[in-house]
């Protein structure tokens, strides 16, 4: 649900997962449910209508006439799934879904960027450490230590990060 945090929506309740989610849903009686497609709770939610009066319909059924197949594909690929409960203005639902997809995409991009930055930081860290070890034990200047790592990496077609890690694992023996 945090995909909806923006100027248009406020969060006032965080739903539980598992069986308690059903109680939450019954109690709050929402108009639309937007749920991460990877959530194991989807099966439970989707089939509520088989077991109670409360009948959330998957947006894929609802949107058959409304939006083209591409929207559904886009939803699945973005990791968004949604359910409509009762009578809701279809235009409004479409706009909520569009926002959810956009937000979710943004969220995924941010998550990926964060992972990449973390990776870069950690490889920078090992290169710095390996450089320092070379400077201390081999009496190399900083620039020579850097060139040494780069040369080994190029000669062996490895990443500098991997070479640095190898140096550090050798260093740890001594």
């Amino acid at each position: 649900m945090n995909v909806l945090i923006n100027e248009q929506y406020d969060i006032y309740h965080v739903a539980h997962s598992g069986v308690p989610l059903l109680r939450d849903v019954k109690q709050l009686n929402p108009d639309v449910i937007i749920i991460d497609i990877e959530s194991p709770n989807r099966d439970m939610l989707e089939n509520l209508n088989k077991i109670s009066q409360f009948a959330p319909k998957p947006i894929v059924v609802f949107s058959e006439q409304q939006c083209a197949n591409t929207t559904i594909n886009q939803m699945v690929r973005s990791g968004v799934s949604a359910y409509v409960v009762g009578e809701v203005n279809q235009k409004r639902v479409k706009s909520i879904i569009d926002i959810a997809i956009a937000r979710f995409d943004l969220f995924q991009t941010l998550k990926q960027e964060l992972a990449e930055t973390k990776q870069k930081l950690s490889s920078q860290k090992s290169i710095d450490k390996a450089k320092r070890w070379l400077m201390e034990t081999k009496q190399l200047s900083e620039i020579d230590a850097y060139h040494f790592i780069r040369k080994v990496a190029m000669d062996n077609s490895q990443k500098m990060d991997d070479v640095a890690k190898n140096i550090l694992s050798v260093a740890s023996i001594f």
Partner: peptide, 20 residues
């Protein structure tokens, strides 16, 4: 009876919590 739909790997935790 009440019948719920629960994904396979969530069955045991739901029994632990007394929901099933």
């Amino acid at each position: 009876i009440n019948l719920l739909i629960v994904p396979p790997s969530d069955m045991v935790p739901s029994m632990h919590s007394g929901d099933l």
